[in-house]
């Protein structure tokens, strides 16, 4: 996969985010749930990575931990050259401000702000001014130029999600984390979002990590990581939809090696 590097750090120039021996345990005693059991993963710069796996396998948990939204029970995490382990609330806040962007499945936007205000919110919070050229590029790429003054309630689900993408892109973070960004959308709007994410990786060198259940969506990525029962069980580079489906079938058939460990 060749990537056309423009204004983001070059692909392969180290990891945008990495986790080493990452454990996440919820609750204690009877109610204890081990969501992640010793995950080791490295997400390369300037690439589009998809995370797949059955429901409850720990995809969201892994993403939350990598993004500094949740704290790991054990293990090391770093985003860019910042180690998350031991960061206090202030440090994590700064990390979210400067290095990561988010796209969620739902409730992405503040209902009281217009689309434009939502897009600029992370910059406003950080007290930064947008780079006008980049801002215009983002707006035109997501095709929202004529919808900027609308409120979220006046936008369709697909449009709302595009606003969320624009918001994540506008501050040019080290990594964008997206948790099932197309989960609530019909296939056409979903495809639009995916193309759009793909382009921002290819054209602008943005690093994106996306959780998805949809093999088609995963085929837009450069690399797919398969999770099962809190562990990485497989991975695929330059995937096609068929290859992904095939892999999922195989994983379902053979119970995960080492899951009983």
């Amino acid at each position: 996969m060749t990537s056309q590097v423009s204004d983001a750090p070059a692909a392969g120039a180290g990891a945008a985010a990495r986790a080493a021996d990452l454990w996440k345990v919820y609750g204690s005693g009877e109610a204890q749930v081990i969501a992640l059991r010793g995950v080791n993963v490295e997400l390369e710069r300037g690439r589009f990575t998809a995370i797949m796996g059955p429901s409850g396998s720990g995809k969201s948990t892994l993403m939350h931990c990598l993004a500094g939204l949740d704290t790991a029970t054990r293990g090391q995490i770093s985003v860019g050259d910042t180690a998350l382990t031991g960061l206090d609330d202030g440090g994590l806040t700064r990390l979210r401000r400067e290095k990561v962007g988010f796209i969620f499945q739902q409730f992405n936007l503040l209902p009281t702000l217009t689309a434009e205000e939502n897009i600029l919110l992370p910059l406003a919070i950080a007290g930064r001014k947008p780079d006008p050229e980049w801002y215009r590029t983002v707006i035109t790429t997501v095709g929202l130029a004529d919808r900027l003054t609308h409120r979220p309630s006046q936008l369709s689900g697909g449009q709302q999600q595009r606003v969320a993408c624009a918001r994540a892109l506008v501050s040019r973070p080290e990594v964008i984390f997206a948790d099932e960004p197309t989960g609530n959308l019909d296939s056409r709007s979903g495809a639009e979002i995916l193309n759009f994410l793909r382009r921002s990786v290819t054209e602008h060198g943005q690093t994106i990590v996306m959780v998805t259940h949809d093999a088609n969506a995963a085929s837009h990525a450069d690399r797919v990581i398969f999770l099962a029962d809190g562990q990485i069980v497989d991975e695929l580079t330059a995937p096609t939809a068929d290859a992904v489906l095939d892999r999922i079938k195989r994983l379902d058939a053979a119970p995960v090696a080492g899951a009983a460990e």
Partner: peptide, 16 residues
């Protein structure tokens, strides 16, 4: 709660 959490996720500090 959701809204405040979103703000926090987008980098707002607890002080903000």
């Amino acid at each position: 709660t959701r809204e405040l959490a979103l703000l926090r996720a987008l980098g707002a500090s607890w002080g903000q």
